[in-house]
Design a protein around this nucleic acid. Structure first.
Lengths: 226, 226
DNA sequence: GGCGTTATGTACGATTCAGTTAATAATGTG
DNA sequence: CACATTATTAACTGAATCGTACATAACGCC
């Protein structure tokens, strides 16, 4: 009764009798939910274990300890972001269109990935300690700056954009507006109402973020007549 | 030996033998440090107690439980912000100067109050749950919007600012840039270097935030000749 | 100067929770 | 098919930590 029936049943229950990689990803996905929702100290290993199709022991088997799991979740969150980012193909567009596209993409991306945003918030609460222990995260991010730099340069050469702009700073500005929109939605909408957070409000904001950035980089004399 | 000497000694040790209000404020101050540093679940009541000049019992005596203390700390954080905010006196300035002053004030204020920023971050992680339970917080914040609205109106009447601007949205933008600067300093500077976070970098950013907002609200035709 | 109320300290209980132990099943390999 | 390696479970442990019970001191009031 203990094994005889159980083994054959289990073989059917766990569809692919053994699936280490699947188990790993299952744990990671559930852990991302739990950590992004409750933070590092708020997250419960037992809760994660309960929501996986595997057991708590497996978490320790694959990830060592709670912080190890958290760190992998954080890496995973950043990894997912990088993927989409290089697909923008701004080179084909004129500078203004490229900048608008970049702004709207960033805004929408953040908006559609609250778990990522929350992980970054949490990591900032921890002063970026765990991120610093990770090799994988630092890599690809500078590409975003370089892409922006290229767009700026083209805009400047075309006489559309001002000189003396710092692509890093511009990235900071776009990130700030896009990030805050998600990170502070709870407190902001409580204090000031949720007008900005309705679908319409968000669409307006998205456009105005791009507009704001554009007005910031454009040359001053906007041809009043034209 | 138990009382005789102890009472007189204690009278000197605790300078004002009994000081309920002082004890309360002491607890609140220490708790603010602990909560803003470690979050709600990360904070340790015993740690707070240890750093107060009173005992753990007092925390429960005055604040009920951990969440009660957290909520009071949150209220306290918001209360401190309100104080300085109404002292700006933007009415005396011309619209452009007023807007610049407001931007720089917000940026600098956030920059100089990381504990407040961290409390807001933490509260957002908790979806603003505790804030919603508090009566005191919601009050004064709409004044900030009204002040901005007045500045915008004056600017529009003077023909300096565009029509159709939303003061709430503008407040959102100024907040976003100022907030993100503090909230995401750890991850951003790790990923992209700390050039923007040196004293010089911050001074530049502060100016450019104001500049960005100004360019956003100004009328298009910037009189190329003048 | 007794006495009720407010304020404070000490020590302990109870629980939650990260991490482990020990046993066992599946899998592949010579 | 023996056997080493990998994968997995259920039950347990010990520490951390929130909260409380109990004792008691100071203060205000009559």
């Amino acid at each position: 009764m203990k094994q005889g029936a159980a083994t054959t049943e289990n073989k059917q229950a766990r569809q692919a009798k053994r699936d280490p990689e699947g188990v790993r990803r299952d744990i990671l996905a559930v852990a991302m939910e739990e950590f992004s929702q409750n933070g590092l100290s708020g997250a419960r290993i037992d809760e994660i274990a309960a929501r996986t199709r595997t057991s708590k022991r497996m978490i320790y088997y694959y990830f060592g300890d709670k912080e190890g799991l958290y760190q992998r979740v954080l890496e995973e969150a950043y990894a997912k972001v990088r993927d989409g980012e290089s697909e923008l193909e701004l080179e084909g567009l004129d500078p203004v269109a490229a900048l608008v596209k970049l702004c709207r993409y960033t805004f929408d991306h953040h908006r559609c990935n609250p778990s990522f945003i929350r992980m970054v918030m949490i990591e900032n609460i921890h002063h970026g300690r765990h991120m610093q222990l990770s090799e994988n995260i630092r890599g690809l991010n500078r590409l975003a700056i370089e892409a922006l730099e290229a767009v700026l340069k083209r805009g400047q050469e075309a006489g559309l954009f001002r000189e003396g702009l710092d692509p890093l700073e511009l990235h900071w500005q776009i990130s700030a507006l896009s990030f805050f929109n998600v990170s502070n939605a709870a407190t902001f909408s409580f204090l000031f109402g949720d007008a900005l957070f309705t679908p319409d409000g968000q669409e307006t904001l998205s456009g105005h973020v791009a507009d704001m950035v554009l007005r910031y980089v454009r040359v001053e004399h906007g041809r009043p007549g034209a």
